[in-house]
Write a protein that binds this DNA or RNA. Structure first.
Lengths: 339, 339
DNA sequence: TTGTAAGCGTTATCAT
DNA sequence: ATGATAACGCTTACAA
């Protein structure tokens, strides 16, 4: 049991709590001698400040909250790693919650974090999230908030993303340059901004290259955008549109589902149908064929988001004005075997 | 800003803080009438108790800490999900830290959690961890501790694992039953108990089936037990022991590395060499060929570990004696295409 | 250089 | 049924 308190040290040394506190915190108005005795005894008794008391006194928890849609997810796992790394540097701890792509959970979890009085909050929105009152609640509590990856453009806070539209545009342009002409798109659901932007990039690339946009070549995945979606839609499209020569998938997991199906029915990739993913999950590099994809720097997104959040926390502490940033991190095309 | 305090409510209502507190906490010795007024005003002012003060007063944080070796990891991600689910049920929050398979970090993070005064700690040990003083520190702080997956048998606390030895034994027996005779094993490093147990299971299965154990067929992966390890060791063994007809890998990631190499040099799986993994990562079901593996129930391990931890936290609160449990969850063989 | 005392926002004990 | 008061352990203005 380690429950040494300042009081105990003080009484053992026959001095006041204040002097003990000051000594331990390196204040200058304590004699070297007493300071030393205090520090020695503290060390000997294994003193650590009671964080509950410190929190109450300083009104900060040295903790931030993180809400992500799904944990079992290559991209988000990497984001978390980046966040944890930045937090550790600053002696901050991170409470992690999973919204499970549900708006309802997201709301509830925000309340939990606010009640816990975390010093800041990091969120990647659920695919369901189309209203933003709960985010504004965070702001009205004066708690720094940084949105990343799946953001709400309308909420007034810092944001860290990639340029989904441009990334998709480049991806499809690349496909066109490789000679593919009938390019289908398996897009995400209608809500998260990313799906929309990736779709828009796809469409624009076609148009800029004089390929007429054909909405019947766009298949919509449901909210999960998972393996099954890719598999099932691949089955459908092969039947409905045998003429396609490439599919641009909204995310790797969907692309992997596509590959799975094409492999099963022995449609050659990329000779008959090319497949291009998005996100560069580790998995995509060990598939057969290896999946070409867009690299989305999860780790850096995490680091940057956290670092902005901590900056804002500090600015707030000093009553300095904070200027919200919108950062876009770069992406790149990873060419492998599927295109 | 939501900083309503009991004091404010009290003064607005012209009653004492005590009465306000009691009303809000449903004590019986408050008149229905005042209780109602208090509750109404509290709701109107959006009162939420200051958790810092509550923590200080009650000496509990309603928070647990979790230390895992790696975050970008299918199995551990599933474990975390299980833990978060149990925590949420009980209105507990979870602080997550990553040891990165380093003993040094593990130690430091334990200190962080202890200083934070979390109500309990959940750990899966790093592959480096061969001494346990830091774990005993947790116990000496009287903080409930549950070890899962990678545990230390010698530490006196509850543990949740699978039976690695039996799982490996069954796995190799299955291989033998399928007719494989020269079975190699890519084992993990010498430290984590799992590696040892899986190796022991492998060895025992051979012996029980009258296949002489040949130590030259056992290749040791380094601490990371990753894709590269599988790939490189596969390259080596194909060269050094062309006679083998199966490889039992300590974990799926290693198995996937093996498959990758065998595919590249066009060694037929499983006709020439069969590959059996361990853990049943999602990835393994979308490989070509699909990987046969041992299902390790990550989600359940997480749930069970958390639930035991919360039980111990409650018992401790009631000053009831706690009896440490060692739970072993079942595994099963997932037969796919690689064996 | 050292110490007193107030206060952070609760909860709990004991009077009234 | 209600309230005064102390306490949790710390920080910090203000005295001495």
């Amino acid at each position: 049991m380690n429950n040494t308190t300042l009081k105990q040290i003080a009484s053992q040394l026959g001095i006041s709590i204040t002097t003990v506190s000051k000594s331990l915190k390196g204040y200058s108005d304590v004699s070297e001698k007493t300071k030393k005795t205090v520090i020695d005894l503290a060390k000997q008794l294994n003193y650590t400040p009671n964080s509950f008391a410190v929190n109450l006194r300083t009104k900060e928890s040295k903790t931030i909250g993180l809400i992500i849609p799904t944990l079992v997810h290559d991209f988000f796992s990497n984001v978390i790693q980046g966040i944890l790394e930045e937090a550790e540097k600053r002696d901050y701890l991170v409470i992690i919650l999973q919204s499970n792509e549900k708006l309802e959970f997201e709301k509830k979890q925000i309340d939990l974090l606010l009640n816990k009085r975390v010093d800041g909050i990091l969120i990647s929105l659920s695919n369901e999230t189309g209203e933003f009152e709960h985010l504004k609640t965070i702001l009205s509590h004066n708690t720094p908030l940084v949105l990343f990856d799946k953001i709400a453009k309308l909420v007034n806070c810092s944001k860290v993303t990639i340029n989904d539209r441009k990334a998709a545009y480049d991806a499809v342009s690349y496909l066109i340059k490789k000679g593919y002409k009938k390019i289908a798109h398996f897009r995400g659901a209608y809500l998260p901004q990313n799906s929309i932007d990736r779709f828009l990039g796809y469409k624009k690339a076609l148009e800029d290259n004089n390929i007429p946009y054909d909405s019947s070549l766009v298949y919509v995945c449901d909210n999960n955008m998972d393996f099954e979606n890719g598999y099932e839609n691949a089955k459908k499209i092969v039947n409905e549109h045998p003429e396609i020569d490439a599919i641009f998938a909204v995310t790797d997991l969907v692309a992997i589902g596509i590959i799975k199906y094409l492999n099963e029915v022995e449609i050659a990739i990329p000779q008959q149908i090319a497949v291009l993913g998005f996100s560069n999950w580790f998995m995509s590099s060990v598939m057969s064929p290896k999946l070409s994809t867009i690299d989305q720097p999860g780790f850096e997104i995490g680091k940057k988001s956290a670092s902005i959040l901590f900056d804002e926390i500090n600015l707030k502490k000093n009553n300095s004005p904070v200027i919200f940033q919108s950062i876009e991190l770069g992406t790149s095309i990873i060419e492998r075997q599927s295109t």
